[in-house]
Nucleic acid binder design. Sequence first.
DNA 1: CTTGACATTGACCGAACGGTCAACTAGGGT
DNA 2: ACCCTAGTTGACCGTTCGGTCAATGTCAAG
Lengths: 201, 201
Amino acid sequence: MDAANDTRQRIITAAQELIYTRSYNEVGVQEICDHANVKKGSFYHFFPSKRDLALAVLDQSQAFMHETIIKKSFLDDIPPLARIERFFTTIYEFHKQVKENTGRIFGCPFGNFGCEMSTQDEDIRSKVDNILSTSEKPFVKALTEAVERGDLPAIDTAATARAIFAYVEGIMLYAKTCNDPELIRELGKRALQLAVPVNMQ
Amino acid sequence: MDAANDTRQRIITAAQELIYTRSYNEVGVQEICDHANVKKGSFYHFFPSKRDLALAVLDQSQAFMHETIIKKSFLDDIPPLARIERFFTTIYEFHKQVKENTGRIFGCPFGNFGCEMSTQDEDIRSKVDNILSTSEKPFVKALTEAVERGDLPAIDTAATARAIFAYVEGIMLYAKTCNDPELIRELGKRALQLAVPVNMQ
DNA sequence: CTTGACATTGACCGAACGGTCAACTAGGGT
DNA sequence: ACCCTAGTTGACCGTTCGGTCAATGTCAAG
């Protein structure tokens, strides 16, 4: 049971890393197993198929992001809008570090999955869809707090959070394609401009 | 020469459609050839490898976007900022139509390629990078005109155009993952908010 | 000591992958 | 009539793909 969990966990972690740095279709089950020191026969003891592994990887990536990026960024030790700004500096520093270590920007794991798989696998699509929605929540909370404090006028915080997070995804895609972490910092500065009253006709 | 061009063209067009609606790694050379009514042996007479086809597909997709979306959106029959708004309604209507026909949103062909291939193939990455830069130009032009007309204060038009187009990519990724064209319309409304003076500090 | 549930292994499956190649066809220039 | 080039074809290459399975190992509960 212990060793089992460990094997399963090693598979997920290996897959997470390989798929994130390459792509779902570029990485085979065999390679994942090699990387996790597991025989392929064992793989199918824990996962009925490769796509079920993908779903598990998404769960783990979401948990990872929450622990390392969301929690840190949205701590309420600073004003709510400053937390959103801190979110961008956090992901900037994260990807800058990754680039120093690997020479590459790999983008957003959820955006990557969504881009590659949304038209191919409905379960993966809806899981990514759900993760994106969940990811908007800390932004909604921060924006709502900002409105309550009077830092922002009354706005549609849910729609604004969605716009900001869509912008995040666009920034990450740009940073990946240009392989330049500085884009995260530079473009991130403008994120809060997406939070203005709904006038604009 | 005529028939040759035609064969080559059919291959590119078939690949463009298949890769756009699925993904590069999901679509094999054989399937592309079947779709184009070409034998696989012929394929390698025109393309040294599958990735060279990908580069040709990117060229054709860029030309397609320029002819069908950019030209139409950025006609100078209306004020410059209205052209940017028209760009969003154009892509909204395009993808709404695609969804009606196919039930799916397939996102941005360049964003898709960039997401899937940037870490795998440097030539493809830099080609997509270049296409993104080129795509910013009509936005730069419109923004510059808007500044000249006094519709906007003096801003960094290049940086603003980049922010807006990154937002476009994020919107397209969101629309694809949520499979909902309405997101393009709703989120697109806020694009011009990314064009404000650089203060904000 | 036995049983049963879970874990592990390696051999194996058919299909598909990207890519190669020699043979053949077609057509225009000399 | 000849050749040369470009285009076409189908058989074929080794490799990898996702997935299956029966046999074996492990170990804790009864």
